[in-house]
Simulated assay, not measured.
Amino acid sequence: MKFSTQEVMAVPIQQAFDLLTEFSELEQAARRRGAQIQRLDALDGPAVGMQWMAVFVHRNRGRRVEVLLTELIAPHVIGVDFTSQGIKGQSRVELLALSPQRTRVMVSLEMRPGTLAARLLLQSLKIAKARLTERYKARVAQYLKELELKAEWQRPGED
């Protein structure tokens, strides 16, 4: 099952990449939502090989997700692999400079079943794919808009 969307951010490509690779802020946001996040690597900054384990409750069941940063090509590509209860997947973010102050952000998420139970889950999700796609696109757009607003706050004073 695959989801994808694209949005345009009113920030330069390097700034968009920097905002999207502030992994410590993503960890903090997940913790605020009740997840337990553990770094499994000893890397200092954003680099291929960064790894996390997240444990959280969703629909009254404990979930566990392992995430590995597999691709990091500044300022154009961020790729992660994840595994959770029989589902394996990849997410990829691609950035393209449209102008010095505008960046197209393309986000994709692909999931594949690894077990029979996961296959049944993904089959049931396919029934609601249209609704899930709309929610996915809305959530990505909201997140990128939040990053855009953060970038405005970070800009030096403009008179």
Rank of each mutant, 00 (worst) to 15 (best):
E158T: 12
E110Q: 10
E25D: 14
L98W: 03
S84T: 09
A35G: 00
E110D: 10
L132R: 05
V107G: 02
E22C: 10
Y136N: 02
V80C: 11
H76S: 15
E66F: 10
A54H: 07
L116M: 11
T5P: 06
L20G: 07
R39L: 05
Q51L: 10
I127T: 11
G79V: 05
G79E: 07
R104N: 04
V107L: 09
T133K: 06
D18Q: 11
V57W: 05
G62L: 11
G86N: 08
A151C: 04
T70L: 09
K126H: 10
V65E: 14
K145V: 06
G89V: 06
R139Q: 15
F17W: 05
Q38W: 00
T133H: 08
Q51K: 14
N60Q: 15
S91C: 11
Q14N: 13
L149C: 02
E152F: 01
A97K: 02
L95T: 00
L26N: 12
A16Q: 01
A35P: 00
L19H: 06
V80D: 07
D41R: 01
L40Q: 11
R59L: 15
K145E: 13
Q85N: 15
R92A: 07
V80A: 12
M111T: 02
E158Y: 13
Q90D: 04
K2S: 15
L69M: 05
I73H: 06
E27I: 05
V65I: 15
E152K: 01
L96N: 09
A97G: 02
P113W: 07
V48L: 05
M9K: 01
P75I: 10
N60C: 12
V105D: 03
R92T: 13
E94S: 10
A141D: 02
F23N: 06
G62Q: 14
G114K: 14
W52K: 09
V57D: 14
R135K: 07
P46V: 12
Q154W: 09
V67C: 12
L125V: 01
A151V: 01
A138P: 02
G157Q: 13
L121P: 05
L43R: 11
V55L: 09
A141F: 03
G62V: 11
